[in-house]
Design a protein around this nucleic acid. Sequence first.
DNA 1: ATGAAAGCGCTAACAG
DNA 2: CTGTTAGCGCTTTCAT
Lengths: 363, 363
Amino acid sequence: MGSRRSHPTILDVARAAGVSKSTVSNVVRGAAGISPDTRRRVLNAVELVGYRPNLVARHLVQRQTTTVGIVVGDLANPFYSELAKLVEQRLSAHRYTTMICNTDGSPENERTRVEALLEHRVAGIVMLQLSGDTDVVGELRSQQVPLVVVSCWEDGSNCVSIDDSAGAALAVGHLVELGHRRITYLSSSLVETRADADRLEGYERALAAAGLEATKATLRWERPAYLRSDPRILHELERVLASEDPPTAFFVSNDLVAVDLIEALEELGVRVPEDVSVVGFDDIALAGLARISLTTVAQPREHLAGLAVEILLERIEAHETLPFRQVRLAPRLIVRESAAAAVGTATALRAAPRTRSPRRTSA
Amino acid sequence: MGSRRSHPTILDVARAAGVSKSTVSNVVRGAAGISPDTRRRVLNAVELVGYRPNLVARHLVQRQTTTVGIVVGDLANPFYSELAKLVEQRLSAHRYTTMICNTDGSPENERTRVEALLEHRVAGIVMLQLSGDTDVVGELRSQQVPLVVVSCWEDGSNCVSIDDSAGAALAVGHLVELGHRRITYLSSSLVETRADADRLEGYERALAAAGLEATKATLRWERPAYLRSDPRILHELERVLASEDPPTAFFVSNDLVAVDLIEALEELGVRVPEDVSVVGFDDIALAGLARISLTTVAQPREHLAGLAVEILLERIEAHETLPFRQVRLAPRLIVRESAAAAVGTATALRAAPRTRSPRRTSA
DNA sequence: ATGAAAGCGCTAACAG
DNA sequence: CTGTTAGCGCTTTCAT
């Protein structure tokens, strides 16, 4: 009867119930047109032999899986892990399973991971990160594999993101209202090229609208320290602050980097927001802590995830190829305490003694 | 030749190369004993028709997949997302793909997600969370599906975790050395039952060793607010602090909750560490920020992940059933600034005016 | 309402 | 060294 160490199959059930394979298949799949009596017999047999459907066989014959891949740059980044969680949640509610791939931001990894997903014949892919260096998008399109790109814009594919430019303008507008006139944009490799460009554009637009000009030296941290201040970054920052006309505020394209920046500033003896203001982007959970209290541009994660899954499933379940859907959601400014009214801070750095973490003194 | 919208198969390659299916299969799989000439012809044909192996077919015939499931309680919890990332990384290096399931801590979800993994015939499962309310462990054993449980102990299965009891003792010992005599243990539903029990045990042991006794009211937050102070929790805390002999220090079984606790304390006007000390558990990235500076017990995540994968692959690739491997790693105390020397703080709460976030005053 | 038969794309003996 | 053959477990016409 039952195979030795292998799983019972539909055939074992059929024998136990005294029916044919197809009948078992029909009841297992809940197909219509089965006599109540047969149904119970089969169900009992299923229970009896401990049958569990083999999805790999089913997927082979159907030439279609119910697996979707999600590729993410860095799962340790709370913005992405939360997004991944939400996507998995919704996918699971629709009886799909999720394969996850972490690329570490490397195009090479991105390529091989997507390749693996394709070999697994995933029904669709959600990308939370897109290096841009590789043509995965084209590849997926040519393979007819539904793709939706989240939180960064990509022409020629489905995507759902926020209006990055408007978000940046919101942030910069806030800083301008607070009286800041020298605002530096700090970006990092943590955010996609396109999103970064859009945020930069919004930054420049908001500045122009206020009759200000962008700081010549837009900063970019290639390898952010990630919740840990890095000596090289400290030096760079020190140089910027020691310049002729140092910024009184920073608009940072990413909360994680904004928090790093605050760490670095305070390590240099510059207080936030008393001496310098900082506003971030994303609104990760961490930003809401009283001790961090980061003013930031919030992305509606639930909405992003919900739309992503909706768009993806729509394409997976459609029989024809649907036109792209590209949706932009509105960002929202969350005002907290990392940005305050501008004061004369031009000499902040030189005036402050360079001590480490001057914030707390022992009790 | 090429099928309409379906993928080219091994047969298409065979025809294009003028060889048989098996030959193609052999070269694709890199089997030995293929003439160099045939090999090139096949490889060219592969390129030509755009062939990509169908893993679902391969897995069906081999009756074994190269997919492993990882089930996690909450991907948004940085401790777990980082662990998940590390596991995926190592798995991927061994050419395995990862299916991820987020249970949200619900036993019901845990059951259905594991069921789905089983239907997918995953080669093995890594559990980063175990509700304990369901008998998944028994089920997996009876199905002969290799399982390794990480960061919590489970008799009767492979597991790798740290010595929770020793970790707790480390934390409490530190607090005792700082002069604290009334130390409360605060646990939460974020940590597994068994790990929680072990930490409690270590806490009591360390206290006993110092001739102290455990606070009567060991606190437990069932639904931690998660980086956001919750009114109910605030009340509970207020009650504890207003008691006859309030604690001067808290040992918290989880960093996230420790950070919540600090938030809540400060919201009540109690300063950390000046008035009350806090030590956490896990050492998530966040804990290292200067503004948080949480003294905590570190778990060697990389080591945990590495061992988990090693143990899992060992069982997957072994032909026989191997005996359980259960390994406990040593925890390490990371001393930062959230715990300081004990001072008379019995009246801290009553003395301090109840203001919100009194830490910063505007510039 | 149920069963028989033909594969899905691939691997794994086994022959030649 | 290469080809033939027989399935893996399931779904899906098509008969009955």
